Amino acid sequence: MKKFEYKFVMISIAHLSKKSFRLELDEAFQKWGNDGWELVKMEPIPSDHIMFRDSKTDEFFTVFKREKAE
């Protein structure tokens, strides 16, 4: 049976507004992909912690997974 490991990353909207951070994040995602990590979920986290249609997002919760080496 396959076994997996997971990586959880929070990404701030404030950081995403900075071009240098977006480039750094792109490099990180490329490296993680090359290391076998797959982005399986990216979900906005509302700042008011209530899931309303017009709520403001301050950050994203991301989940990566890859198969464990036996």
Rank of each mutant, 00 (worst) to 15 (best):
K19F: 05
P46E: 04
R53Q: 12
R22D: 05
M51E: 10
D58N: 15
F21E: 12
D54W: 11
K56Q: 06
W32G: 01
K19C: 03
H49Q: 04
D58F: 11
D48F: 06
S55K: 04
D26F: 12
R66K: 15
T62E: 12
M42F: 02
D58G: 14
S20Y: 10
R22S: 07
P46R: 08
L39A: 00
P46C: 05
I13R: 08
I50N: 05
S20A: 14
S12G: 05
I13C: 07
G36H: 02
D35Q: 12
L16W: 02
R66W: 00
D48L: 05
M1A: 14
F8Q: 08
A14W: 03
F52Q: 07
G33H: 02
R53C: 08
Y6Q: 09
T57Y: 04
E38C: 02
D26M: 10
H49C: 01
F29N: 02
F8I: 09
P46M: 09
T62S: 14
P46I: 09
I50Q: 13
K19Q: 10
E27Y: 13
R66L: 03
G36F: 09
F64P: 00
M10R: 15
W37V: 00
F4C: 10
K41S: 13
K7R: 15
F4S: 13
I13L: 05
S55I: 01
F52L: 07
K65A: 02
K7D: 04
L25G: 08
E24C: 06
G33A: 06
I50M: 07
S20T: 12
T62Q: 07
M42W: 01
A14T: 11
F8H: 11
K19R: 12
L16A: 03
I11T: 13
F60E: 07
S12I: 01
F64L: 01
E27A: 15
W32E: 02
R53V: 10
F52C: 05
K19A: 09
T62V: 08
F29H: 03
K68L: 15
Q30S: 12
A69E: 14
S47I: 11
F60N: 06
L25C: 08
L25F: 15
F61C: 07
L39G: 00
K56Y: 05
W37S: 00
E67R: 02
S55F: 00
A69R: 13
Y6P: 02
E24P: 01
